[in-house]
Amino acid sequence: MKLETLIGEPWADYALVDSGGGRKLERYGPHRFIRPEPQAMWQPASLDWVADAEFVPGADDDGGGRWRFDQPVPKGWSLAWHGLNFTATPTPFRHLGFFPDMMPVWAFAQDKLAGREGATALNLFGYTGVGSLAMAQAGAAVTHVDASKKSVESAKGNAALSGISTVRWIIEDAGKFVAREVRRGRRYDAIVLDPPKYGRGPEGEVWHLETDLARLLADVRLLVDENSSFVFLTVYAVRMSALAIGALMRQIFADLPGRVEVGELAVREETRGLLLPTAIWARWVRSD
């Protein structure tokens, strides 16, 4: 199975400026941040990084830590991508309120949905909604699902900033929602899912990627048919292989016409053009 790398290029409001030594320096609009990055095993282009804030990881392996601010940073500020507006903000989970390396997924979804009259799209684990807004901008009727009320409220705020009012917002465990849609006989033209390694639903539901992904994908398969456009899965658990999730999707979607493609997500460093890998992905795409 051939692996393809989808590359997030720098844009006006975001860039991976430099990376190395287990860290990365990024620009989010007018502000710069340093965050841990275990995959940046090389040496940085410069040893003299200047940033507004740095995330200092905790002693454990569970993502703990805190932000250290060297310059005042607002609680939130607006960024733009291809006519969409959304808010960046430092969060306790070391990221800035959205995932810029998902830009190739947003672009792919828009390309596939553009001009598809009456298209419907589902964004599972939709977080703060940039992917949902990208699909809505392409003309799709989007259903955005996330178990976090706070994330959905942030997504609604981003939709308001972008002038988009056509997204249906659902606060629910993704697995429960998909199972209910299957029982209702619903179908979608496009589905994007970005599940976490571990998570909890609003009613205490527990999600473990390694044990629950196959069941969720089997239900997702029942929400698409031969006339659907694509299903796009991204995974940030580094212990999984792109080949593994590709084989899983190939098995589950074997009865549909089309192809399964797999690979990695990466961000291009602005300074030297190095590619920093961030996630793995697999997608089923209908044959044109």
Rank of each mutant, 00 (worst) to 15 (best):
G63W: 09
M240I: 04
D173F: 07
L96N: 05
A282P: 01
A147N: 00
E172T: 02
G58Y: 12
S228R: 06
P196I: 02
I7E: 10
K156W: 10
A51K: 08
F98K: 00
E117S: 13
L84R: 02
P196S: 05
I191T: 11
G29V: 11
L275R: 01
R221Q: 14
T89L: 13
Y188L: 12
E226D: 11
E269N: 15
R23L: 09
A51Y: 12
S148R: 00
D101W: 08
G185L: 08
V260G: 00
E4F: 02
G185E: 06
H208D: 15
W49R: 09
P72M: 00
L113C: 10
V130C: 05
E261Q: 13
T211P: 02
W169H: 15
V285G: 06
R272K: 15
K112A: 15
A159V: 06
D62A: 13
L113K: 09
A174S: 15
G83H: 07
A160D: 08
A155Q: 10
E117C: 07
K197D: 12
L122G: 03
L25A: 04
V206W: 13
E9W: 14
V238R: 06
V192P: 00
D62K: 13
M135I: 06
L248Y: 06
W42R: 12
R183A: 07
N227W: 02
Q251I: 02
V50W: 09
T91A: 03
K75Y: 00
R239P: 01
D255W: 05
V238Y: 05
G83R: 07
R168A: 12
R94I: 09
P277W: 03
E26D: 05
K156L: 11
R94P: 03
Y14F: 15
T120Q: 04
V235T: 02
H144F: 11
S165M: 11
E270F: 08
E264W: 14
